[in-house]
Design a protein around this nucleic acid. Structure first.
Lengths: 257, 257
DNA sequence: GAGCGTCGATAACCTGCGTTATGAAGCTCT
DNA sequence: AGAGCTTCATAACGCAGGTTATCGACGCTC
């Protein structure tokens, strides 16, 4: 259902125009898919940076284990995301990555990535743009951790998931599957599991979030968006024009407004 | 005292080998230096991304103004840092940037950057590596905001400044000039100014930080480093070998261990 | 050198969130 | 279907850190 190419290409072609050759190159990244099970650690912090992955099915998260025994989840990855690009440019992993539920991933090497970059500037630009956007999401979370209260953090987190899932067609009637435990949500938001539970109850009482086990419904997404003043620049905005020329593209389509 | 080239090149040559032509190209970025005064806003959030800057003198910070009236400082920039690369790949600024004290900056355009990238893969790799490291520092701050107490955040913040300043020769006898107000430190760490003051007093009482107005001394930096379990990977680590070949470098020097 | 504005220290008070505990509901294994 | 595990809801309690206020020290300008 979530084929690698369709998801990644959808993301890329949003930014740049892709030739048939580009598409073939992209597909070459997903030649070796592998089943992974819930909880499986793809790599640990400080491990050598040998490969990156595209998630085809399932959710994953990157995390840091801290000296005081707690964990900070840095980012949640959904189908179609590329994992590990954060470590591009380093020789050791800055964070571990683990699967949240069962899934299917396609690992590829540094080598493959460099080759793809060398052969297609358009893809290089597209992949770098995706990476930059992921960093922007991290920055957004930083702002929330620093300056917002628990209910705003949680609302923002859920709304971001909602938008990202909608883009990959995983939202139905404003509802989606959310395989994270409240403990994990807490680790992402810098809250205790207990307080996440309290905060869910609060959002429920205000009619903003309905949740039944792993199913979440946002009855009025716009109301949530207003609550968190959601800044969606980093999710959808097109590349600046200067990029197009740098990529030396045989582009036929104009960037979106 | 802090010439652009010496600082940036020092950072770059740590990662890659630079030819004479590379150095000339780099110097071309600093042809139009401009004096700026304390508090001056270099650009606002949402402004068009037209240029980037190298800081030659003075400190700056990037920030987000929030709907609830507070501000989150994302990152403090020191002499030799490149500002604005966070927005590379976007057409609007994701954050504003303002000067902390009087300084000297060298703005350069998208155009110049692309040209430099096209002419020197080594410089492209080096600059991207610098950008990636800055992102890693942001991630580190995110972890601290999420999971550490005030005294640990402050200690980490000061120790990071100490290391970065030492690299550019701005530390003398474990002391350095720190032009941030406690209000600004609070905005960076997600704390109130009052609590920053309390926390400074605490660290003073424990003999870890001595401060007199804008002068900060860390009597025992190693003790501080242990307190925050400082992870300095992202500050000094060399590029992975694969990068060297990708850059197609006429390299004569080997990367550091 | 008097007046003013900014910055920092400290105190008093309040609250949001962490911690610990308990019980209920669902999941898995046999 | 019962044992044991994990997840979640809710309550009781304590504390770290926010808020407000006051005062002193310093750095401006005229």
């Amino acid at each position: 259902m979530t084929l690698l190419d369709s998801v990644v290409m959808q993301g890329l072609s949003r930014h740049t125009a892709l030739t048939a050759e580009d598409k073939t190159l992209l597909l070459s990244l997903e030649l070796n898919p592998r089943r992974v099970s819930a909880g499986e650690v793809l790599w640990q912090e400080s491990a050598d940076v040998d490969l990156f992955c595209v998630i085809k099915e399932g959710w994953a998260y990157s995390y840091r284990n801290l000296g005081n025994g707690s964990m900070q989840i840095l980012k949640v990855y959904l189908p179609g995301d590329i994992i590990g690009m954060r470590d591009f440019g380093f020789s050791r992993r800055l964070a571990g990555v683990a699967m949240i539920n069962d899934g299917l991933i396609s690992p590829f090497t540094h080598q493959q990535l460099f080759e793809l970059f060398g052969r297609s500037p358009a893809l290089a630009v597209g992949i770098i743009a995706l990476t930059v956007r992921q960093q922007a999401m991290l920055t957004e979370r930083l702002v929330y951790l620093g300056r917002y209260a628990a209910h705003e953090r949680l609302a923002h987190f859920l709304y971001e998931l909602y938008l990202r899932l909608k883009r990959i067609g995983a939202v139905e009637e404003n509802g989606f599957h959310m395989p994270l435990s409240q403990e994990q949500v807490g680790d992402a938001l810098g809250l205790s599991a207990v307080h996440v539970s309290r905060t869910f109850s609060m959002l429920r009482d205000e009619g903003l979030v309905i949740r039944d086990r792993q199913h979440v419904v946002l009855p009025d997404p716009d109301a949530l968006a207003r609550l968190v003043e959601f800044n969606d620049t980093y999710i959808d905005e097109a590349l600046p024009v200067a990029f197009q020329s740098f990529a030396g593209m045989r582009s036929t389509s104009a960037p979106q407004a």
